[in-house]
Computed example of a mutant assay.
Amino acid sequence: MADRLTVGVAARLSRYLQVLTQAKKMGKERISSQEISEYTNINATQIRRDLSNFGRFGKRGVGYDIDSLLAEIRKILRTQGQHNIALVGAGRLGAAIASSPIFAEHGITVAAVFDSDPAKEGRVLGGVTVEPLDRLDELVRERNIIVGVLAVPDGAAQTTCDSLVGAGVKIIFNYSQALLTTPGDVQVHTSNPAVELLYALYFHLT
């Protein structure tokens, strides 16, 4: 197997992982490529082709063992183990992110939460105490954090991003609408529900 997956394969495997995780929570033990297809809108033939590139996981007429396939996809995506993230922004969006159980299901821990508002300092979100921004560098390094999540206003996004990068963070998830400038070795992923909706509408209406 190549050291790095193509963007398309990695994106599809991530969607399979999401479906498998939810199916396991529903009590299912096996799942077919057709069922995965129905939840992801990815052709079942493509799903079987993707998975067959990494080994023999399923049997015709029987489907895939969910536990085994979950473990294999996590290995392929290199998501085994524990990953600590820092969340900046303790407003309504930040509180929802910190309290979501989704991260823990994939071995991701919100290890630190920061906010510039003194009124929010000391609050507990998802079991983590909100810290002032002047502790960001210290705690990011102390808690071995390499991923930062920005849930801040657009005007504060670049400055906050710079602080995270300065502390050693290599991956930024940006929930603001700001266009961020970062060094070449730092990945930025921007989440924009409106853009994703437009993308879905384009394929539904054309």
Rank of each mutant, 00 (worst) to 15 (best):
E105C: 06
D65E: 01
E29N: 12
S116L: 11
R123N: 07
V149D: 01
I73P: 01
P101R: 09
Y39E: 01
Y39T: 04
K120Q: 12
L87W: 05
S32P: 02
T182S: 12
G166Q: 01
N43K: 10
L133Y: 00
T182C: 14
N174E: 00
D65C: 08
A11G: 02
P101S: 08
T160S: 06
V110N: 05
E72K: 15
L180H: 04
G27K: 14
Y64P: 03
S37D: 02
C161A: 13
K24T: 03
E38N: 13
V165Q: 10
I102N: 10
Q158T: 05
D50L: 04
E38Q: 15
S32L: 01
N41V: 06
V88A: 06
I31Y: 03
K28T: 01
A200T: 11
K59Q: 11
V169Y: 02
G148C: 14
L136C: 04
V152E: 00
D154P: 08
L77A: 04
A167H: 04
Q187E: 12
E138P: 01
L205V: 11
I171Y: 14
A156G: 09
T45W: 14
I31S: 03
L87F: 07
Q187G: 05
E105S: 10
I85F: 08
I145E: 00
D185P: 00
V165I: 11
E196H: 10
Q177C: 10
Q82M: 06
I97P: 03
A151T: 08
N144V: 12
I146N: 15
D67V: 08
F103A: 13
Q22P: 03
F54G: 07
L136M: 12
I102L: 02
Q18G: 09
R56Q: 10
K24G: 05
F114K: 06
G89W: 01
